[in-house]
Design a protein around this nucleic acid. Structure first.
Length: 565
RNA sequence: GUCCCAGUAGCUCAGCAGGAUAGAGCAACAGUUUCCUAAACUGUAGGUCGUAGGUUCGAAUCCUAUCUGGGACGCCA
């Protein structure tokens, strides 16, 4: 059901093969305003080729277009505008959605290939901040979108569970820690210790050495250090999983930094074998001058490895374990250089699969126009925001629909949906200024708006005693003017998915479902679906189609769709 | 200093493999509920698309320069 293609074929015939079908298809566009038509073909470039006025060419083409698919063809200036046959197309689209249900919009270009997605990756013993939200939510949506396009996503939570900060943390705990306090409120307490460490270290630089030496002990397998580390890690994961559960995010792997500790030597050895390691200021680096990049630091002057080394090890491990066709890293934009270097080094090592690695950057969460800093304890906790949002949803329910059956569940779906949608609706690269007010907005282009639209549509189906059998026999009318905008939005779904998948851009889906919801809400205000009319069954089928697509669109973003709210 | 990203309505943003009068939402103002959930809908107002050049029949969209904001540039991740 690709009308662009169909039109391209017709034009190809009409032009007697002067231009390829592919080129024609590319030139066909959607008019800005639907009153101009559903498809348009601009004749400017043809004018050059045929040395004829574009509007004359359009007129000539108009005469040659005869197809039941198009009910009207108009020439406006240099444009050939085509109107689709509403009855025929509506019938096709709606019956397709009714047959395919949630599979409507599925694509198959992934052909089952594994795609690893490095996402979320919070740091142990640190709070799950708003910054981690972005990676989690964007990664999760990309995973679902890829899956819809036929790939097999593998979600990897590359936990920040190793590094010198653990030395500092252990040192701080040994100085000021209180076991009971940590048990009661692990992350808050550990964070407080971490912040205190940095504050005290400013006056007492000896603390830094202490931290370093504890990390050394940790690396050497010191029992006390290890058991503290393990404890911190377990407690942190417990807290994280609470948040993941709230947001309905699951992972296929929690292999974090510590997991690669024993896989680093091999990387160094490989680099040495390939003669890529060079000494520079007592450190070991890979030069990337041909790539016009700064050198990539592999080993510190004290012999310790760095995160580039770790990421190299992880890349190798992932290729060997999952044999990915793509390997994605949903990591903040500030790490762009690191990933450029990482990929360049792998390429230098002779791995051509490095070309399948993609850094998916995103803008930062800012507070007062600046980056949030963990060290100074200047963070906003995701869990608190989620809980506030849920509370807000609950009070809305009390006010608007107090008799709702499962208030808790719905409040959670709506509150969490608002936060997720707020993050996904805009282009990834935009920085987001943290604003609770903005995030807890439930009106306009928001998650709750889309959910609400879905709930109202469901309500119509319920009250109309809709059944698939009855509406599959529906007869459509040629004058489906009011429903046409909705039908043509329904047709756009797979385009939105394609765009989202190609660009790893969930906002395409978010914008699409808002548009669909807007068109449906307009329709809802104009037409009483439940009124008796010849068109009632067809209209119910349209409403059902809208619920299918809205639900699926929300699902792709990781948002639930309650049937009542 | 070099590199990356962003600059469109008061605010938040769409639109950017060039195309027909630059679109939404929020905020403001004026309306809509005996009628399928008003978390909705309708209308009004609001723009020299950062700035200057260039390419083109045509530029918010491509190129160059420039300004502003953010970020990154070896021993943190």
């Amino acid at each position: 059901m690709n009308f662009k293609k169909e039109l391209a074929g017709i034009l190809y015939e009409a032009l007697e093969g002067e231009i390829s079908v592919e080129q024609l298809e590319q030139a066909i566009e959607k008019p800005k305003n639907q009153s101009l038509g559903d498809l348009a073909f601009p004749c400017f470039s043809l004018a050059k080729l045929k040395r004829k006025a574009p509007n004359l060419i359009a007129e000539e083409l108009k005469e040659k277009i005869q197809s039941p698919t198009f009910e009207k063809v108009e020439v406006v200036g240099a444009y050939l505008n085509l109107f689709l046959n509403k009855k025929l197309v509506s019938e096709k689209v709606i019956s397709q959605i009714m047959t395919e249900d949630s599979h409507y919009g599925d694509q198959n270009f992934g052909v089952g290939g594994n795609v690893t997605i490095d996402m979320s990756s919070p740091n142990i013993a640190k709070p799950f901040s708003m910054g981690h939200l972005r990676s989690t939510v964007i990664g999760n949506a990309i995973a679902k979108i890829l899956e819809k396009c036929g790939y097999k996503p593998i979600r990897i939570n590359h936990l920040g569970d190793w590094g010198t900060q653990f030395g500092k943390l252990i040192a701080a705990y040994k100085h000021w820690g209180d076991e009971e306090k940590v048990k009661q409120n692990p992350i808050k307490e550990l964070l407080a210790l971490y912040v205190q460490f940095h504050a005290e270290a400013e006056m007492n630089p000896a603390l830094e050495d202490e931290g370093r030496s504890w990390f050394k002990k940790l690396e050497d397998g010191d029992e006390e250090a290890l058991s503290l580390w393990q404890w911190f890690r377990d407690e942190s994961l417990k807290e994280f999983s609470r948040i993941y559960e709230l947001m309905n995010v699951e992972f296929d792997s929690f292999a974090g930094e510590a997991f690669y500790n024993d896989k680093m030597d091999r990387v160094i050895k490989l680099l040495e074998e390939k003669n890529l390691l060079v000494e520079s200021d007592q450190a070991q680096v890979v030069e990337l001058t041909e790539e016009e990049l700064p050198p990539c630091l592999i080993k510190k002057s004290d012999g310790a490895t760095l995160y580039a080394t770790r990421d190299l090890a992880a890349a190798l491990y992932r290729k060997e374990t999952y044999d990915f066709v793509k390997s994605l890293y949903v990591v903040g934009h500030e790490q762009s250089l690191h990933f450029k270097q990482l990929i360049a080094v792998l390429r230098k090592m002779g791995y051509d699969w490095a070309d399948n690695m993609v850094h998916i950057p995103f803008g930062m969460m800012l507070k007062d126009g600046k980056k949030m800093s963990t060290r100074k304890g200047k963070v906003v906790l995701l869990e608190e925001v989620l809980n506030e949002s849920i509370e807000m949803a609950r009070s809305n329910i009390e006010e608007k629909n107090p008799n709702l059956a499962n208030k808790d569940e719905v409040a959670k779906q709506v509150g969490v949906g608002a936060v997720i949608f707020h993050d996904l609706k805009n282009n990834r690269m935009n920085d987001i200024e943290f604003s609770l007010e903005e995030m807890l907005r439930f009106e306009g282009e928001t998650g709750p708006y889309v959910q609400y639209t879905f709930a109202r549509a469901c309500s119509i189906l319920r009250k109309g005693d809709w059944t698939k059998d009855a509406s599959s026999q529906a007869s459509y009318h040629s004058t489906w003017e009011k429903e046409w905008k909705v039908v043509s939005m329904l047709m756009e779904f797979s385009n939105a998915i394609k765009r989202a998948c190609e660009n790893f851009d969930p906002s395409q889906v978010a914008k699409y479902i808002v548009d669909l919801a807007q068109s449906f809400n307009k329709y809802y205000a104009e037409v009483k679906v439940l009124e008796d009319s010849e068109e009632k069954q067809a209209r119910l089928a349209l409403v059902y189609s809208v619920t299918v697509v809205l639900k699926e669109g929300l699902r792709l973003l990781g948002i639930d769709a309650p049937e009542e709210m």
